[in-house]
Design a protein around this nucleic acid. Structure first.
Lengths: 151, 151
DNA sequence: GATTGACCTCAACATTAGTTGAGGTTCTAG
DNA sequence: CTAGAACCTCAACTAATGTTGAGGTCAATC
């Protein structure tokens, strides 16, 4: 594979190799509106270079447990058509980081509660906050719903 | 529904209501070896009361993102046949908490890396640790594989 | 200008974690 | 002792996140 000039759009093979995401997954992302591609005269995909960053964002978001549906929503806030600027990405990353903070806080909360449970060996349904997530949800304020740990 | 005497085994309806887990999910857990039940002469399930705690453990573990397969493994370390003691549960909870700590650390690591990324607005595939989880896996020592964030 | 690797579409399959429904049985209250 | 709620099994379905394969096309190299 010849090394691509820095300006040429990426083939799916190149994007796959550079992002570490399989071509079939890239197809899948496209079907689900997470990424998009131009086509050559011969119907092959050509990705703008900023798609690499987009895929990076997808992967990273998945690593913290976000479903693709939510990731797509976030990506939808990027400008349509034009290449996103650093500012665009920063805005996205910042929002994302705040939610990450909440997630960490939720986990710490869980851990602290578990400390209590270890003390009594209980994991009791009645008393243990671990079993009553609604408590901590209520306490953590608005906007936390989505970031509650899965289920 | 009459309130059950504290000693009588639980019907599936009772276990479901008290644990907040649907009967169909309880069936599912049983098929997958996570819980078990005695049967009445008429083939209906009767759960030992400590099954409630077992289900609590399952729910709690799921809340931090563990797959059922792993939860089953953990539960397999509980004594077969006899009702687990507080000590048994404590042992399980402690191990679980340690892994929870690792998970928190991984998330914090991610967040710190993201801070760097926001600074440059990059999310670059090359330089950003967020994109190269293997780094942090290597750094976090043995036993961390399973607790890497999903995918 | 032919070969061959990369690409295309579409359909089927895989996995996890269940839910839903049909058709039938058991248990409990009156 | 009977009505109705609760339970049983089994099979099929759901949703998310992809992978695999068949059958065919494109494009870059010798």
């Amino acid at each position: 594979m010849p090394t691509a000039p820095a300006h040429r759009p990426l083939t799916i093979g190149e994007l796959s190799e550079r992002s570490g995401v399989s071509p079939s997954a890239l197809h899948f992302y496209e079907r689900n509106g997470l990424i998009e591609a131009e086509r050559t005269a011969g119907n092959q995909r050509r990705y703008r270079r900023d798609t690499l960053r987009r895929v990076a964002f997808i992967k990273t978001s998945q690593r913290v447990g976000l479903p693709l549906k939510d990731i797509r929503e976030a990506l939808d806030s990027l400008p349509e058509g034009r290449t996103p600027t650093k500012r665009d990405w920063s805005r996205l990353s910042l929002r994302w980081r705040e939610e990450l903070d909440q997630r960490i806080a939720a986990l710490q909360h869980l851990r602290n509660d578990l400390d209590g449970c270890i003390g009594c060996g209980c994991l009791s349904l009645k008393s243990c906050t671990l079993q009553n997530p609604s408590d901590e949800l209520g306490a953590s304020g608005a906007g936390a719903q989505r970031w509650t740990l899965p289920k």
